[in-house]
Simulated assay, not measured.
Amino acid sequence: MTDKTSKEMSRDQYSQVGDAYVRSQTHAKGVDLDYLLNMVQPQKDWKVLDVATGGGHTALILAPYVQQVIAVDLTPNMVETAKKFVCDEKGQTNVTFQLADAENLPFEDGSFDLVTCRIAAHHFPACQKFIAESVRVLKQGGLLAVQDHVLPAEENHALYVDQFERLRDPSHFRAYSEQQWRQMFELGGLQVQQTRQLTKRHNFIDWAKRMNCTEETLDELVAMMKNAPNAVKAWQKPFPDADHFGGIETSFVNHHIIVVGRKG
């Protein structure tokens, strides 16, 4: 898969589901947003960049605490949908939206006090380049805060979990373990200040339908869950148990990490 193909897949996929992501309770609410606020401690004079803003929920929660938020996304439909939600529906006046590629940010060096990216980096074909770009546009002492899916440390189990996510969303490029996130931050010149892992439980049907999965894909996802190694089942905690997984009330857990690093 080339970088161009991966980005085109993301753009095409999210052009169709923008409103679903604005209304998604998984993205709009949750203790993870509170954790993120507490970990970065935003200040009134800060200028913030929210990368791959999606439905705009991170920009929305940060806006009351800072001077300005610029929210960017690769997908035109997401930008327009998020702008209507944050600015028109929620009335935030210090948030602006524009198109931008996370790996080629159109901003000058040292422009921002804080760069955020929430539940999006698994789509980036060159995550280390995204980190380098974030560091470039940060001021000295500025913070990069990333929240994303996190994988188990054991490689085979990590590959299985990642494939499960990719089957549901072909624009999913890859996720990383906590150790890999720490290594990428440090390689990018960031001092890791804090990390925090958390879980999110998803209704399986809602989770799959949000990406317009076909019935065939639903069956494949159910089969993956039923045939998963025991360690993966323990990681995903299907309910009811995996042998009965796939009905309208079934759910599973995925794991997230929040990583905050400071530009030295």
Rank of each mutant, 00 (worst) to 15 (best):
G246E: 04
T81I: 13
S15M: 08
R210K: 12
K139R: 02
F124K: 03
K200Q: 15
F185D: 01
V161L: 13
C87P: 10
A100M: 04
G54P: 00
D50E: 05
L49Y: 09
V222W: 11
D19T: 13
K47A: 08
P125T: 02
T2Q: 12
L143T: 01
D241G: 04
G189C: 07
T250P: 02
D241Q: 11
E89R: 06
V48S: 03
Y176R: 01
A63P: 00
Q43Y: 10
V40R: 03
A121K: 05
G264S: 14
R182W: 05
F124D: 02
S24V: 12
N227G: 07
V137F: 13
R182V: 05
Q236P: 09
T96G: 07
R174P: 04
R210Q: 11
L33A: 09
P64A: 13
K237L: 14
S177D: 07
P238G: 15
R262F: 06
S134R: 03
D3H: 11
V135D: 01
V253Y: 15
Q179W: 05
L138R: 02
H57D: 06
D101P: 15
L159I: 05
I70F: 02
A82E: 00
A100G: 09
F85S: 08
I61M: 03
V95K: 05
N254D: 14
D241L: 10
K237W: 03
Y14W: 13
L159P: 15
R136H: 05
A158Y: 04
E89P: 02
F112Q: 06
N156G: 09
Q128S: 15
D113I: 10
P152G: 12
K7S: 09
V48D: 02
V69N: 01
K84N: 14
Q183R: 06
S134H: 02
L37Q: 09
P238D: 12
Q180E: 14
G261Y: 02
R210I: 07
K29I: 04
N230Q: 15
K4C: 13
A28Q: 11
E220K: 15
N230Y: 11
E249Q: 13
F245T: 09
V115L: 04
G247S: 11
R23D: 14
F239H: 09
E165N: 08
F164P: 15
G247V: 06
E186A: 05
Q25D: 14
